[in-house]
């Protein structure tokens, strides 16, 4: 199991050919109180970099991009009623979607935890 990070502050945790996607703890901290989350429909196919969801704080709306290409196989329905879960547990219970990867080589272009930490510190 490996976790990868994007420069847009998404994470993807890969188990087999399924990746679980969310926004990072740094991202939720920057957003502030999350009040609304939109997740894609199960069965939808997304390409790396596509808009796959929306996260809204009191102040602003932000897109969540697909960190890798794939088919959406599950979404976190619980976030609709409890969007604050993204603040409380961004990198675990606050996950957005699971997708079946179509091209695992895309993972090579993402950051590992140490590289992401350095990336955030340089922001």
């Amino acid at each position: 199991m490996s976790v990868y990070f994007t420069e847009d502050h998404e994470w993807v945790r890969v188990e087999g050919d399924v990746g679980t996607v969310g926004i990072t703890d740094y991202a939720q901290e920057q957003l502030g109180d999350v009040v609304y989350v939109e997740v894609p429909e199960v069965g939808k196919t997304v390409a790396k970099g596509d808009e796959a969801g929306v996260v809204e704080s009191v102040k602003a709306a932000s897109e969540v991009y697909a960190p890798v290409s794939g088919e959406i196989v599950e979404v976190n329905e619980g976030l609709a009623d409890a969007p604050a879960k993204v603040n409380e547990s961004a990198e675990a219970d606050g996950w957005f979607m699971k997708l079946r990867l179509t091209d695992t080589s895309e993972l090579g272009g993402l950051m590992d935890a140490d590289a992401y930490k350095a990336f955030v510190e340089a922001q």
Binding site: E10, L31, A60, S62
Partner: peptide
């Protein structure tokens, strides 16, 4: 993720 709220 991309924050659209910043202004310069």
């Amino acid at each position: 993720m991309n924050d659209q709220s910043e202004s310069q």
